[in-house]
Simulated assay, not measured.
Amino acid sequence: MAQNTDSEQCSILVMASGNGSNFQALIDAVTSGQIPNSRITQLVVNRGKAYATKRAEANNIPWEYFNLISHGFQSKTDTDPAKLQQARENYDAALAKKILASDQRPDLIVLAGWMYIFGEHFLDPITAEGIRVINLHPALPGKYDGVNAIERAYEDFKAGRLEGNKTGIMVHYVIKQVDRGEPLMTREIEIQQGEELEQLKERIHENEHQLIVEATAKVVREIMAAKSQ
């Protein structure tokens, strides 16, 4: 049977920083065809001990470690805000250039537990080339932007400040404003009375695995429809 050509497949680059359980969900969904007409061409990690790399190796997916400090963009001792900002801009630009120069240039970038905020020096050149960038975030649109979203929602729940006792998750397009891009899919999750934080995290992660697959499949279908025109 003839292999699909690039025009018949959506090339996906995944970025992760840790365990990579959402990366694994994407791998499984591509393999099963739940994410159709697609292949994961590369994993990029920004933490040297990210277990996601083991998942990549087990599935014959190339991976690369690219870090702000280890690759010389920022010194551990830098405290000057201007230098720190310049370092991030240089890192963003270098990573964008690396991706665009690759023989495996992606159609879609999925941030699956990527613990780093991209600025315009990454997003502008990537999106200018028509590459879509989506992110998974464990909160609903406009709620708990940034880090520790689950913990902050849980604290509000315990304090009686969480409306309807509901938090949630979303997959959204990535823009310069943190977690404020257009939502692709959302899912509400009600926090249960007596539930501990770790129990909530486990339930949220289970839902994340489903939502990131569904949202990625949706975007892939849109990309492939555009390719066929």
Rank of each mutant, 00 (worst) to 15 (best):
L95I: 05
A139E: 09
H137K: 07
N148I: 11
M170H: 12
I99T: 08
G72Y: 12
Y173V: 00
P125H: 06
E163P: 11
H137V: 03
I134T: 02
L162K: 11
G119A: 09
R161Q: 14
L111A: 09
A149P: 05
P81E: 07
G119W: 07
G113I: 01
A87D: 01
G113N: 05
F73P: 05
A128C: 03
K76C: 02
Q104P: 06
D78F: 10
A149W: 02
N135I: 02
D92W: 01
K76N: 14
S102Q: 10
N165S: 10
L162F: 07
G142I: 04
G142L: 05
H172Q: 11
K176M: 03
S75G: 09
T77C: 08
K97F: 15
Y154E: 04
A139L: 06
T167P: 04
Q74S: 05
V110H: 02
L136P: 11
P138V: 00
G146E: 10
I117L: 12
E151C: 15
H137C: 07
V174M: 05
A159Q: 13
V174I: 10
N148C: 13
I169N: 03
K166I: 08
A112G: 01
K166R: 06
N165Y: 14
I117M: 13
D107T: 09
E155C: 15
D80G: 09
I169V: 06
Y144C: 09
V110G: 00
A96K: 08
P125Q: 09
I99E: 05
F157G: 10
R180A: 15
L111C: 06
P106D: 11
T167R: 06
L100I: 01
K158C: 10
A101G: 14
Y154Q: 03
V178C: 09
H121T: 04
R88P: 05
G168I: 08
D156P: 02
L140D: 11
V171D: 04
D179V: 04
L123C: 05
L162G: 09
L100V: 07
K83I: 14
L136A: 13
K76L: 10
N165P: 12
A87M: 03
L108N: 03
M170E: 12
D179G: 03
F157R: 15
D107F: 08
G113A: 01
Y144H: 08
S75K: 13
K166E: 04
N148K: 15
L162T: 13
Q104Y: 14
Q74G: 04
Y91R: 00
D92V: 01
D78E: 15
L123Q: 00
D124M: 14
G130M: 12
R88H: 04
Y91E: 06
R152M: 09
V171I: 10
G181M: 05
I169G: 02
S75V: 08
R88F: 00
I117G: 06
I109L: 07
L136G: 13
D80I: 12
G142Y: 00
A139T: 13
N135E: 02
L100P: 07
G160D: 06
E129N: 14
D179R: 06
A94W: 05
D92K: 00
D78M: 13
V171L: 02
Y144V: 03
